[in-house]
Amino acid sequence: PPAPAYFNQETLQQRLLTLIEGARETWTYAIFWQSSVDVASGVSLLGWGDGYYKGCEEDKRKQKTTNPATAAEQEHRKRVLRELNSLISGGAGGSSPDETVEEEVTDTEWFFLVSMTQSFVNGAGLPGQAFFADAPNWIAGADRLALAPCDRARQARELGLQTMVCVPVGTGVLELGSTDVIYQSLELMNKIRVLFNFNSFEIP
């Protein structure tokens, strides 16, 4: 029998892409945090399920003018990216050298990459809070992000994001982020509920 749809990363990726690319608003990324329980400790955990990064063509220019990362920070990001690239390509560097690894890593790219290493235990963090309360959390505006009781939200703000949304869906939480201020939209919430109906094998 086919595996449940939520275990299939291809359909998950397709849902994230459909949501972001089809949205009226400009979202920078979407992440699905998958819930699980550690059998040994009984700890409930939200970990990386999958993510889709859209970014923005103007990210670089925006970053250069408003929030230039220091040279040392850029070097650190490039080094990490080089190592990850080498890990993915098996260290052989592929058939042709990838010069884009040497390009500046924007703040939002870095935020997305760092997200892959994160997890939230027992309702901690913005995704964890949304999951345990079973209620969406929509934070629009840098000032509100700065006040959120969550390190991730504050880091998001420091890296240029202005809106973060966490919506519990099925076996996890869908998180959206944008460098724009985007206010809550019923249309988007409905779209999320339809797209992330995990009882459906079909992508609507």
Binding site: Q13, W48, G51, I88, T100, L113
Partner: peptide, 30 residues
Amino acid sequence: NGDLPMARKKSLQRFLEKRKERLTALGPYQ
């Protein structure tokens, strides 16, 4: 440590491929 969980590895692979496409389309960085 060189051993990424599969979900993260796939996500990372997609991210790097898409980044390459995006940057190649934008042309050399000024």
